[in-house]
Design a protein around this nucleic acid. Structure first.
Lengths: 352, 352
DNA sequence: CTGAAAGCGCTTACAG
DNA sequence: CTGAAAGCGCTTACAG
């Protein structure tokens, strides 16, 4: 096997035929009455170009409808203009959680404003991981944004070893080493904020629905909860959700109602989980917030659409995306960067 | 202004320096003791290559860690290996609806399996549209998948005029002309299915929450509803949602309860809208399905997570994605294609 | 089956 | 400020 993903060799011929050969730099130079080099200089910042040449070239570009051939340019500059957005998740539930969608949209938009494009790559299976690594090594992208929720994901380290600029969204796996740059919301202090709030509202038996144990959210948010409650947080007050889904939230909440029937508040580690928790509480005849206070995490779109609307911890997703892009582009430009942890804040609605 | 998006000319130098120059075809050829041409032939299908050369080249590739430079290859083949996935939507609510996420994930996965990559492009604003067009014309991609929910979107026509292979998801705007290839779920007959089902369950006053009037879903699904009810569908039984969101569904349902207080069933044009409709009904003290039958559309992940679980019309999204990719790649290969409309089906749960 | 050579469209020192 | 020229790494007729 050649070390190369198959790219439909058969179809190349046809694709080539179909492509009209647009005007090249040569054509523009001819029309403008200058050399190819001058056209190139106009394209790349217009330094050291007389205003007469500048005008002539611009006019010629308009006339010919010239569009630069990015492949030719990339071949010499060794820079593709694209960034890989790598989603290291099992494929089934992808995008069910609005957090990912928000991140992806924001990054795409911000990169676009910088004249860069985003390649979406899935890396949930071993084959996909290989493809992604191969793709990055092939120089298709100038840098990588990795969104991985699971600890112990080997991809982070492998990507780092390619030597390409890399920024991870969320805290990187411990095994990654200290040199890995990341941007994360402060999960732990957000969880503390919410737990303290529930306590301040006079509740005595505050349970929690934690996220899966192999995710940063599942670890950090539970830690924040424990920071506040100390030994008051007994094991019967903690339930693990199997995934970040509505169903899993419902199941975890049901388990909690069984193990701790007299709970009077619950901190749920994500809004989507909280939707399920609300259903379980309603189903058990518990009034929210009357009998049980419910606090979520994320402040995703669904938080204001539940009944009652969800009091939650706001992750600054737009800012996470902005910093992710900023840090990565700095890295691509060869400038020094450092990791960033962004503050979270409490958003009060009606559920707590 | 040069006709060219700025791609950080300043950063190029740094990026270049940072890039280690991997082994080239020349290096592989040297190690294998053959010419560059033979290495290339091995890479592109291994026809007309002796098994001795083949083995030598493969071994040399392994030894050197060779990875093909896609830019150099694309420059001569005029084929980038990438496909643009263009989302022509206003940015705010993007991905709130799980339908888009599902489509994107499936397309990315299927393209990946074909050795192709997906570039995500937003085209919600005029600037973004220009960027997208420029990008496509620049030859960055071999073809375009356009997901546009809004009629009268000029982008479809503009993309078509570039001459690049294009497939639209959903029925294209009427103005697009007959030659535009599309893949769509059969919205109208799905709506008929649901309306007929509500009728068959003995309901007399079947209202509908329709999608925005400028979307295919808003038009076709309402048409299907009217196909079945004829003049029994009076204007007071139809409410338009302002967008495909939970809030809009709640508002439309509230309006319906005012204009038609004795309704005993409602067909809601999307699952997300139906979540809002359920909230409004519960808020008004109506039991579902006891007092009012509720039918949704999409069968997205949320449909099985509502209380009660939603009876809905299933859009075959995985199949839509598969056909989208298949048709586009055929087009890219220069083969003939035709548009496809995929059947929808009723999924019974508890809300109706 | 295989090598030598042309060429894809651009950028960038290098002279001037 | 500008042109001529080399070179980026590959593919592909063209001979043999």
């Amino acid at each position: 096997m050649p070390d190369e993903a198959p790219v439909h060799p058969k179809s190349r011929g046809a694709a080539r035929r179909a492509q009209r050969r647009g005007p090249t730099m040569e054509d523009v130079a001819d029309v403008a009455g200058v050399s190819r080099g001058t056209v190139s200089r106009v394209l790349n910042g217009a330094n050291h170009v007389s205003s007469a040449s500048l005008a002539a070239v611009q006019e010629a570009m308009r006339q010919t409808g010239y569009v630069v051939n990015q492949n030719a340019r990339s071949l010499v500059t060794r820079s593709s203009g694209a960034i890989a957005f790598v989603l290291s998740e099992p494929p089934d539930r992808l995008f069910e959680d609005p957090v990912l969608g928000s991140l992806l949209r924001n990054c795409t938009q911000l990169l676009g404003e910088q004249g860069r494009s985003l390649m979406l790559m899935l890396a949930g299976t071993p084959e996909e991981r290989d493809r992604t690594l191969h793709f990055v090594r092939g120089g298709h992208v100038d840098g990588v944004l990795l969104v991985s929720m699971h600890d112990g994901d080997p991809l982070a380290g492998e990507l780092q070893r390619t030597g390409f600029p890399l920024v991870v969204c969320g805290r990187p796996p411990a095994a990654a080493g200290p040199s890995m740059t990341y941007v994360a919301a402060d999960d732990r202090s957000g969880a503390r904020l919410m737990t303290q709030y529930l306590l301040d509202r006079g509740r005595k038996r505050i349970a929690t629905v934690a996220g899966p144990a192999d995710t940063a959210g599942g670890v950090e948010r539970l830690a924040g909860y424990r920071d506040v409650l100390g030994r008051r947080a007994t094991s019967r007050m903690v339930a693990r959700a199997a995934a970040y889904t509505i169903e899993a939230g419902r199941e975890a909440m049901t388990a909690l109602l069984r193990s701790c029937p007299d709970l009077d508040a619950v901190f749920v580690a994500s809004d989507l989980l909280a939707v399920g928790a609300l259903q379980a509480l309603h189903g058990a005849g518990k009034a929210v917030p009357g009998d049980v206070l419910v606090g979520g995490f994320d402040d995703s779109a669904i938080a204001s659409a539940t009944t009652p609307p969800l009091t939650t911890v706001r992750q600054p997703l737009a800012q996470v995306a902005a910093e992710l892009v900023e840090v990565l582009l700095k890295l691509v430009a060869g400038r020094p960067v450092s990791s960033r942890v962004l503050p979270t804040e409490l958003v009060r609605r009606d559920s707590a």
